[in-house]
Design a protein around this nucleic acid. Sequence first.
DNA 1: GCTGAAAAGCATCGCCT
DNA 2: AGGCGATGCTTTTCAGC
Lengths: 159, 159
Amino acid sequence: MSAEPDASLDEVDRQILAELQADGRMTNVELARRVGLSAPPCLRRVRRLEEERIIRGYYADLDPVALGYEITFFALVGLESQKEAMLSAFEQRVRAWPEVRECHMIRGGGDFLLRLVARDTAHENALTSKLTAADEVARVQTLQTIRTSKDDAGVPISV
Amino acid sequence: MSAEPDASLDEVDRQILAELQADGRMTNVELARRVGLSAPPCLRRVRRLEEERIIRGYYADLDPVALGYEITFFALVGLESQKEAMLSAFEQRVRAWPEVRECHMIRGGGDFLLRLVARDTAHENALTSKLTAADEVARVQTLQTIRTSKDDAGVPISV
DNA sequence: GCTGAAAAGCATCGCCT
DNA sequence: AGGCGATGCTTTTCAGC
């Protein structure tokens, strides 16, 4: 499923990826200028990177507060058992909750780390209760974010 | 610092945000068609949303593995004290580490949740050691991701 | 605050190096 | 592989509703 047959990325490809990671709406002409190519070969490289799923998509980064989500929090969730059926059942359950934005299974058995958003404290409490009440769930520890000093998407790119 | 004077987003604005959150490279003509506007007013709305920092930017979503980062992990870091000077010192320290992609202060005093990427296990161990060795740090618990079943950027948008 | 036309700029193709 | 030139869209501005 993941992208790299040989991961044949030369320096120009890495520069393209770094530029598009920083500004995904840049025009191809501007991108070409920055990496020192003319427009057509630059576009061909971008298309190849998209086809090989090295570029997985382009997203607008929105202010959660402007959209009514005052709270971002994480939850460490421990399940009743680490049987695969139960792990999958939990994953399927939270997949359907729009407030759960990320769900990561953690090494060590039966634990998940979730990232959630909530409109306010009442909404946050309701979500925590809904997690605690789920059949598969044994314990929930919420980690409420009170300040975020760094929030970079993606990965570092050394060009 | 955050964006909303009145958060005057009508239904069309929300639709625009939902579309651009899903595909940040969509042309303005296509966006206008989807939200039922002609191109010029649609572009004006997008510009307004950008100026008010409701749209904070656009980025390409890249495959970490293709760029050589096999491992994503989280770290729960407890500091020696919760004095503001020590909290800031820790934040400044990790701001300079490119492998630390997110740094969130957690309610309850002196704890941080970090998201990090590493090229391999050796790199991950080195990062964990570097965290443990930092002056401000009392304890580090790494939460290694073994499978991610949901990884949605942004927030849910009810149109 | 929208529409429609027009100018400028961009994406993209075919061909050449 | 990269560059050039041509074509059809897209973006962007501006007048008018």
